[in-house]
Design a protein around this nucleic acid. Structure first.
Lengths: 360, 360
DNA sequence: AAGCTGTAAGCAAACGTTTGCATATGACTT
DNA sequence: AAGTCATATGCAAACGTTTGCTTACAGCTT
């Protein structure tokens, strides 16, 4: 086929033409009434046949006629209308910082698998770490009458989720905490443990001068990674710290800076994978071979590490596990299982690769 | 803060306790009626104050009382209920193959920016290229009464979108076509042009023995990349083709295979970035330096190429542009602008990097 | 004094669904 | 023959909104 120019198609359906004359026209759906009419019965009966879950007697004859009519008329139930009378909308709201970060897309994919299996749809949005945006998104999700929310909050998350909590919305917080709030469901990684294990591993490989590069997030729980790194080093090793913004470019800049200031550093520990990406680029541009001239330890499993060059040593955060747990905990709440707000803390595990050289 | 063990929190809100006794309990929302009661007025008036767009006289006094009552009672309008009476739900459905593919997340992010600005929410789902899943997702989106759908269809997309088209749902197809259907809005890349330009560029750099690695998608428009590659080569160059599945591992396997069978190949052209990822890994494992021992050309701008090692020569597909256009075209339809089904074809452009060596 | 006009707010129908209640028939018990 | 089932269906209220229609009053013009 010659795909370059097909030429715009001029065929327009009859419906479109009618619509245009009236200005904005909307999709037209068949209603229960239409189906009832065609099947020669009443709305109530049709409702029972198509969506009913009570125990009501319906003859085979009627059932068949209703089914046929619904099929022919392309009946599609209006979930908004049905949720008016009690019942769930089967809709979940998800707020993550950014789609571009694999850590979050993995969480979402894992959660999605659970939700799809249970017949739930998801409204997914990037907050881009903007609290204003987070606030308005949450409000909009409530307006859509979602059955529950999964959120990785911004720094103002506690305040922004207040409205949701005030109406009793089911909620699961993932990764970052809701600071200042205490009775909520929280699925997260053991950030402190993560930082601790990272330094522990580097020390076990003989490193004593280590650079830690992190993010000034304003989120206490994330800062725990840094604190843990220092605690793990104790007086057995020296950990130099550089914090900056959450971007690849910044990671590169901090990497150059820390190595200039402390040329005796033998290993770098990156707390955040976006920064690590820029950092690793920078190291390679500087002509250093990772795992030989300099050792590198990461937190997380970003896509850019799949380059065939290094099989990076890192702390696996169990991304998929987090998403799966979050979805399961939210569903349990929605389905009314007796349970209490609680923290589900997943431990990190060290994955040994080739980016850390054993010295001495 | 010591983040390791906080100990599960035992504080439970009163609401939670009440809820538990009744088994599954739902979020309880304030209604217009509640607000009207508190403000000492009627439902209709409240509706006008809070959401009305008609021209109705409301005194400042009443407006103030209503606003206050709504605020105090945390009123949140039910969009499902409001959309019953005409009106839009301000909800868009988006179907993409996979979140893990940056090409699609970029499209979604660009579209999201447009939708958020106009106050629309999005239901986003991965089809995972599974037609069954695609079909049920589309049905569910219709049940949620989305105002429009953006879809990158699977191979059975034409059939699966039939229901949506039959109810007059606004729709924009992105990237892959709807085969066999002809009056639809399609925002896509010029796949043929992409393939053509890639080979053209390689030839301009002196390459005459080129390997093309692609995907047996069953989607004709994607196969145009391969056809274009062959057309561009004509009798001036030799293009060897290997097709396989859509995975990184397969990309690696095909790379090894094609080089074994045709050791005189000087450049590889990857039609799909997932395969390229595995292919590039394989090349590096084989000890080849890209841009020196072997030349590589990609289509797209995947995240894994940001490694600081190669600045890959590639065909930019204008990912963000596609998403932006798709969202804009869908909104135009929803807002009833007079328009006709049409194809919006974005051209690819060659981005020159360092992965293609100039020879002879 | 009748008729406008401008301002303000109440009333109730309608949207598409679910579901408790009532009705209707035939068959089986006592 | 009256009573009780089991089966099958109809009816209408309710859910939370929106919006056209009505009412009410006050200040104008003729």
């Amino acid at each position: 086929m010659g795909a370059v120019e097909h030429g715009a198609n001029v065929c327009i359906s009859k419906r479109a033409v009618e619509g245009r004359s009236k200005g904005k026209e909307m999709a037209k759906y068949t209603t229960l009434k239409d189906v009832a009419q065609k099947a020669g019965t009443t709305i109530g009966t049709v409702s029972y046949v198509l969506n009913g879950n009570g125990e009501r007697y319906i003859s085979e004859e009627t059932r068949r006629k209703v089914m046929e009519a619904a099929e022919e008329l392309h009946y599609i139930r209006d979930k908004g209308a049905s949720s008016l009378k009690g019942g769930h909308r089967r809709l979940i709201g998800i707020l993550i910082p950014q789609f571009e970060n694999q850590f979050f897309t993995r969480i979402v994919m894992a959660a999605e698998a659970v939700f799809v299996k249970h017949g739930y749809d998801m409204i997914i949005t990037n907050t881009l770490d903007d609290p204003e945006r987070e606030k308005s998104i949450i409000r909009r999700m409530l307006e859509q009458r979602v059955d529950g929310i999964i959120v990785t909050p911004t720094a103002k998350g506690a305040e922004n989720t207040e409205l949701a909590r005030s109406v009793g919305m089911k909620m699961v917080v993932v990764d970052r905490p809701l600071e200042g709030v205490n009775d909520y469901y929280w699925v997260t990684t053991n950030n402190y443990g993560c930082g601790f294990k990272g330094i522990e591993y580097l020390m076990s490989m003989g490193h004593r001068k280590i650079g830690y590069i992190g993010w000034n997030s304003g989120i206490l729980d994330l800062a725990a990674r840094e604190k843990a790194a220092l605690d793990a080093a104790g007086d057995k090793a020296m950990v130099y710290v550089e914090n900056g913004e959450f971007s690849a470019a910044e990671g590169g800049r901090l990497t150059r800076k820390i190595l200039e200031e402390h040329p005796d550093i033998t290993a770098l520990f990156y707390g955040f994978n976006i920064q690590a990406q820029g950092g690793v680029n920078e190291l390679r541009r500087m002509g250093l071979t990772i795992g030989r001239d300099i050792s590198v330890m990461l937190i997380g499993t970003p896509m850019w590490t799949y380059t065939g060059l290094n099989d990076f040593s890192r702390l696996d955060m169990g991304d998929f596990e987090l998403g799966k747990t979050a979805a399961q905990v939210l569903l349990d709440q929605i389905q009314g299982k007796p349970m209490q707000p609680k923290q589900y803390i997943h431990d990190c595990s060290v994955i040994e690769g080739d980016s850390v050289l054993k010295i001495n």
